[in-house]
Protein backbone atom coordinates (compact mmCIF):
# COMPACT_ATOMS: atom_id res chain seq x y z
CA UNK A 1 0.00 0.00 0.00
CA UNK A 2 1.21 3.47 -0.76
CA UNK A 3 0.77 6.24 1.71
CA UNK A 4 -2.23 8.39 0.88
CA UNK A 5 -1.14 11.95 0.17
CA UNK A 6 -2.06 14.51 2.79
CA UNK A 7 -5.74 15.29 2.30
CA UNK A 8 -6.78 18.93 2.25
CA UNK A 9 -10.37 19.58 3.32
CA UNK A 10 -11.98 22.93 2.81
CA UNK A 11 -14.13 24.35 5.55
CA UNK A 12 -16.77 27.05 5.13
CA UNK A 13 -16.61 29.84 7.70
CA UNK A 14 -18.63 32.98 8.29
CA UNK A 15 -17.71 36.23 10.00
CA UNK A 16 -19.41 36.66 13.35
CA UNK A 17 -18.51 39.55 15.66
CA UNK A 18 -15.15 40.00 13.91
CA UNK A 19 -14.32 36.32 14.28
CA UNK A 20 -14.49 33.52 11.75
CA UNK A 21 -16.90 30.80 12.77
CA UNK A 22 -16.66 27.37 11.12
CA UNK A 23 -19.98 26.14 9.75
CA UNK A 24 -19.35 22.95 7.84
CA UNK A 25 -17.10 21.18 5.37
CA UNK A 26 -17.30 22.25 1.75
CA UNK A 27 -18.38 18.70 0.92
CA UNK A 28 -21.53 19.23 2.95
CA UNK A 29 -22.74 21.66 0.33
CA UNK A 30 -24.22 20.99 -3.12
CA UNK A 31 -23.70 23.71 -5.75
CA UNK A 32 -27.02 25.45 -6.34
CA UNK A 33 -28.52 24.58 -2.97
CA UNK A 34 -28.25 25.49 0.67
CA UNK A 35 -28.16 24.10 4.18
CA UNK A 36 -29.30 25.55 7.50
CA UNK A 37 -26.85 26.01 10.34
CA UNK A 38 -27.04 27.17 13.96
CA UNK A 39 -24.91 29.99 15.32
CA UNK A 40 -23.76 29.93 18.96
CA UNK A 41 -26.59 32.28 20.04
CA UNK A 42 -29.23 30.08 18.41
CA UNK A 43 -29.60 32.22 15.27
CA UNK A 44 -30.29 30.20 12.14
CA UNK A 45 -28.32 30.96 8.99
CA UNK A 46 -28.73 29.61 5.47
CA UNK A 47 -25.45 28.70 3.78
CA UNK A 48 -25.22 28.27 0.01
CA UNK A 49 -22.74 27.30 -2.66
CA UNK A 50 -23.10 28.69 -6.17
CA UNK A 51 -22.15 26.98 -9.39
CA UNK A 52 -18.72 28.57 -9.36
CA UNK A 53 -18.09 27.14 -5.90
CA UNK A 54 -18.42 30.36 -3.90
CA UNK A 55 -20.12 30.13 -0.48
CA UNK A 56 -22.70 32.63 0.82
CA UNK A 57 -24.61 32.99 4.08
CA UNK A 58 -27.78 34.89 4.96
CA UNK A 59 -30.49 34.66 7.62
CA UNK A 60 -32.50 31.45 7.38
CA UNK A 61 -35.75 33.21 8.31
CA UNK A 62 -38.01 34.15 5.41
CA UNK A 63 -39.22 37.62 6.45
CA UNK A 64 -42.40 37.30 4.38
CA UNK A 65 -43.74 34.23 6.20
CA UNK A 66 -41.62 34.03 9.33
CA UNK A 67 -40.66 30.44 8.55
CA UNK A 68 -37.02 29.37 8.83
CA UNK A 69 -36.73 28.00 5.31
CA UNK A 70 -34.52 30.17 3.08
CA UNK A 71 -31.86 27.45 3.14
CA UNK A 72 -34.29 25.27 1.19
CA UNK A 73 -34.75 27.70 -1.70
CA UNK A 74 -33.32 27.45 -5.20
CA UNK A 75 -30.29 29.48 -6.24
CA UNK A 76 -30.16 31.53 -9.37
CA UNK A 77 -28.36 34.52 -10.78
CA UNK A 78 -29.71 37.79 -12.12
CA UNK A 79 -27.40 40.31 -13.79
CA UNK A 80 -24.48 38.23 -12.63
CA UNK A 81 -25.47 38.38 -8.96
CA UNK A 82 -26.48 35.25 -7.06
CA UNK A 83 -29.86 35.02 -5.36
CA UNK A 84 -31.99 32.49 -3.54
CA UNK A 85 -35.75 32.22 -4.16
CA UNK A 86 -37.76 31.51 -1.01
CA UNK A 87 -39.36 28.08 -1.27
CA UNK A 88 -42.62 29.41 0.20
CA UNK A 89 -43.73 32.46 -1.78
CA UNK A 90 -40.74 32.73 -4.16
CA UNK A 91 -39.41 36.18 -3.24
CA UNK A 92 -35.76 36.41 -4.24
CA UNK A 93 -32.92 37.57 -1.97
CA UNK A 94 -29.49 38.74 -3.10
CA UNK A 95 -26.97 36.42 -1.47
CA UNK A 96 -24.26 39.04 -1.09
CA UNK A 97 -26.36 41.83 0.44
CA UNK A 98 -29.50 40.05 1.71
CA UNK A 99 -31.63 42.58 -0.17
CA UNK A 100 -34.98 41.28 -1.43
CA UNK A 101 -35.11 41.72 -5.21
CA UNK A 102 -38.91 41.74 -5.27
CA UNK A 103 -39.53 44.22 -2.45
CA UNK A 104 -36.82 46.78 -1.87
CA UNK A 105 -38.09 47.58 1.62
CA UNK A 106 -37.12 44.11 2.84
CA UNK A 107 -33.61 42.92 3.65
CA UNK A 108 -32.29 39.94 5.55
CA UNK A 109 -28.87 39.87 7.18
CA UNK A 110 -26.03 38.69 5.00
CA UNK A 111 -22.75 37.35 6.41
CA UNK A 112 -19.25 37.46 5.01
CA UNK A 113 -17.93 33.98 4.25
CA UNK A 114 -14.65 32.37 3.33
CA UNK A 115 -13.20 28.97 2.70
CA UNK A 116 -10.42 27.88 4.97
CA UNK A 117 -8.15 24.92 4.63
CA UNK A 118 -8.46 22.39 7.38
CA UNK A 119 -5.50 20.06 7.18
CA UNK A 120 -6.31 16.52 8.16
CA UNK A 121 -4.00 13.59 8.43
Amino acid sequence: MTMAPERIDLRVELLLDQRWFAICDLTDLIPGRGVAALLPDGTQVAVFLDRAGRPYAIDNRDPFTGAYVLSRGLLGSADGRPFVASPLLKQRFDLETGRCLDDETVTVQAYATRMEEAVAA
Binding site: T65, G66, Y68, L89, K90, R92
Partner: peptide, 18 residues
Protein backbone atom coordinates in the same frame (compact mmCIF):
# COMPACT_ATOMS: atom_id res chain seq x y z
CA UNK B 1 -42.64 31.06 16.99
CA UNK B 2 -42.32 32.56 13.54
CA UNK B 3 -43.14 36.15 14.50
CA UNK B 4 -39.98 38.13 14.25
CA UNK B 5 -39.20 41.67 15.37
CA UNK B 6 -41.68 42.91 12.78
CA UNK B 7 -44.49 40.42 12.54
CA UNK B 8 -45.23 39.87 8.88
CA UNK B 9 -48.78 40.31 7.69
CA UNK B 10 -48.33 38.58 4.37
CA UNK B 11 -49.19 34.95 4.24
CA UNK B 12 -50.39 33.76 0.89
CA UNK B 13 -49.71 36.48 -1.58
CA UNK B 14 -47.32 35.28 -4.23
CA UNK B 15 -45.35 37.94 -5.99
CA UNK B 16 -46.68 38.49 -9.42
CA UNK B 17 -44.21 38.50 -12.23
CA UNK B 18 -41.78 35.93 -10.93
Amino acid sequence: LLSGPNIPVRTARTLEGT
